[in-house]
């Protein structure tokens, strides 16, 4: 029951990130919103692994951590590039 509450909290955090992704005034908010959504997904995967008792998909967390970082770094480089070119931020 409490783990259900924990997963509900991570779902709320993901929804908050999705809201900021859709509404966010500029590109930077969208980048950080995706990052928050990704990390709340990682938390939900952890709690789900405990609920179901199997550890098979825990290795997914490492992949998500590395991919999340690479995406944020690449997107922030694009942010600087887009601003210099005067593209919509």
């Amino acid at each position: 029951m409490i783990t259900g509450f924990a997963i509900a909290c991570f779902v709320f955090s993901g929804l908050a990130g999705t809201y900021r992704l859709l509404v966010g005034p500029d590109l930077a908010d969208r980048i950080i919103a995706l990052d928050v959504t990704l990390i709340s997904l990682m938390g939900a995967i952890t709690v789900d692994a405990v609920r179901r008792g199997d550890e098979s998909n825990l290795i997914l967390l490492v992949v998500l951590a590395i991919v999340g970082f690479t995406a944020t770094a690449a997107a922030s480089r694009f942010l600087v590039h887009a601003a210099q070119k005067g593209m919509a931020r």
């Binding site: 924990a6 509900a8 709320f12 955090s13 993901g14 928050v36 709340s40 938390g43």
Partner: peptide
């Protein structure tokens, strides 16, 4: 952990 994630959201 869930509550802190709510804080982040």
């Amino acid at each position: 952990g869930g509550l802190i994630a709510v804080l982040a959201g």
